[in-house]
Design a protein around this nucleic acid. Structure first.
Lengths: 178, 178
DNA sequence: CTGTGCATGTAAATCGTTACATGATTGC
DNA sequence: GCAATCATGTAACGATTTACATGCACAG
């Protein structure tokens, strides 16, 4: 699933400009996906060429023309077709945890600090999501929001209970290179 | 953190061939990172050029020469320097959950099936990791393995308890396009 | 008067996967 | 006899980010 496909999906919620689609990525999908203008605008142009979205321009005084995109019937069909392809397996990318897989090279104090940072960052996300969760109107957004909270809480609990493994790994080796 | 950096890291565990590094990605990091030969071999070549690893060839009868890579002192310093850069935030990429954010376009039976599939896939991962966890020798590997289990278990529990939200979203809308 | 929000886009650079190319050995 | 393991690499392609380019309006 690439940016193009997801833009199409976002347009099933209603017409939007490229700018608004970017916000939708942040509001609805930031837990799973982020996209920059540099990928969204070209994606919308391609979709238009392919006839999967249509575009009407609205002129504004003293602003660039607003281009409002709508998904076409053909676009809806194409999107649903893509939704039904079996999804690729989930992937977690964590530079912090990757770093910690090399705890044997790092001083114990640094490992401890990193772990605290990870826990702190997760807590911040949990807080933010907890606030947002109630403001969400759709059930799927509530689901995703709750999912994020549940997973981050589990992560923090696990880290708190097992961080000694990494801290021990660091202490066991002498990292002369530090 | 790119493949090049992680190859360097893997070599801190001991000398290895490109082939063995690929296995190390699978054995040690598959939860966080995967890499193909198409990225590993060019990475090793670049690292050699940069003097961060050295390479000795071992000729084998009836096989291509084995190229055994070692990290140099300079490489160790460079790697630790990179470990100390503050890590990018974690990212979760889940096509299945992304698909489910569009439950309003899918028939309820399909949503239910997808949820079952996700739970099943997670269970399989939990099982695999549970087996592997004991065979791991290093503490950091045990940590990561346990982390995977904890997070996937939390995910499955959350999904089981809240799947009705997505199933309802699907039922609430009529998806004529199905 | 400064930063944030609105609004669009392009070009280069980065990073990686997939497919191709080759081929012997070992275990079932 | 067939699949998996060992072993290396390149080239084309794909996807996305980053940096650049522009500029007004409004709030604090």
């Amino acid at each position: 699933m690439d940016v193009k496909t997801i833009c199409l999906g976002i347009l099933t919620f209603g017409d939007a400009t490229g700018y608004e689609i970017k916000k939708a990525f942040q509001d609805r999908l930031s837990l799973l996906y982020e996209a920059s203008y540099g990928s969204i605008y070209p994606a919308l142009n391609k979709l238009t060429t392919e006839g999967l979205v249509s575009c009407r321009a609205e002129s504004q005084s003293k602003r660039p023309d607003k281009k409002i995109y709508s998904i076409t019937l053909e676009g809806q069909l194409a999107f649903i077709r893509q939704l039904k392809e079996s999804p690729a397996p989930d992937k977690l990318r964590s530079e912090a945890l990757t770093t910690l897989m090399f705890a044997h090279l790092l001083p114990a104090s640094y490992v401890a600090q990193l772990l605290d940072d990870v826990i702190g960052a997760n807590e911040k996300i949990i807080e933010t999501l907890s606030g947002e969760c109630e403001t969400k109107h759709s059930l799927s957004e509530k689901f995703l929001c709750g999912f994020g909270i549940a997973v981050k809480q589990a992560a923090n609990q696990y880290i708190s209970e097992n961080r000694h493994l990494l801290e021990a790994e660091s202490l066991l080796s002498d990292h002369a290179a530090e």
